[in-house]
């Protein structure tokens, strides 16, 4: 097997975040931040429910999905009980904080300050009738899929 030294290091990543649950948003944020820490150019493209992560009103209130989420190892009916999602969210936020991962809003500021760019998907913004002021000030722009591909040129695209 070829060793990793035979390959060129990754220079640039464009990460798509398409889910709006806490467990759907964090992996993409961690990968973007990790890329910047390694000196890799990074941008984030938020689409569909992923937009919740950059909406001022929603970003710090994301929930863990306890229904339809086999990773929770919880029977569907149990997951549907009132308060179950809130409970799972509270537990996960506590564990996330313990390993020094910031809440979503603070994490986005940190990622943006590291030089990564944040973009919202034009189609989703139009679909939900959202305005620029609904989003975190760190947002670098609302762009089309075509513009996303232009910006992603020469790098790797990661879909989450």
């Amino acid at each position: 097997m070829p060793s990793e030294t035979e390959f060129q290091p990754i220079q640039k990543v464009s990460i798509v975040i398409s889910k709006g649950s806490l467990d759907g948003v964090y992996p993409g944020l961690i990968m973007a931040n990790g890329a910047r820490m390694e000196g890799i150019e990074a941008s984030l493209f938020f689409t569909f429910f992923g937009l919740d992560a950059i909406l001022k009103k929603r970003m710090d209130n994301l929930k863990v999905a306890t229904v339809g989420n086999p990773g929770m190892h919880m029977p569907t009916l149990l997951g549907a009980l009132p308060g179950m999602s809130a409970f799972a969210t509270k537990m996960m936020k506590k564990e996330i904080e313990k390993i020094d991962i910031p809440p979503v809003g603070e994490f986005l500021t940190m990622i943006h300050d590291s030089g990564a760019e944040l973009y919202a998907c034009r189609a989703t913004v139009d679909m939900y009738h959202l305005k620029r002021e609904d989003f975190t000030p760190e947002l670098d722009g609302i762009i089309s899929v075509g513009q996303f591909y232009e910006k992603a040129a020469g790098g790797q695209i990661i879909f989450t």
Binding site: T109, M110, D113, S114
Partner: peptide, 18 residues
């Protein structure tokens, strides 16, 4: 330390660190 802790406790913010 993690970058988050580093920037919180060293007095140097993320932008400057990079």
């Amino acid at each position: 330390p993690s970058i988050r802790r580093l920037t919180k406790e060293s007095g140097v913010d993320t932008k400057t660190l990079y």
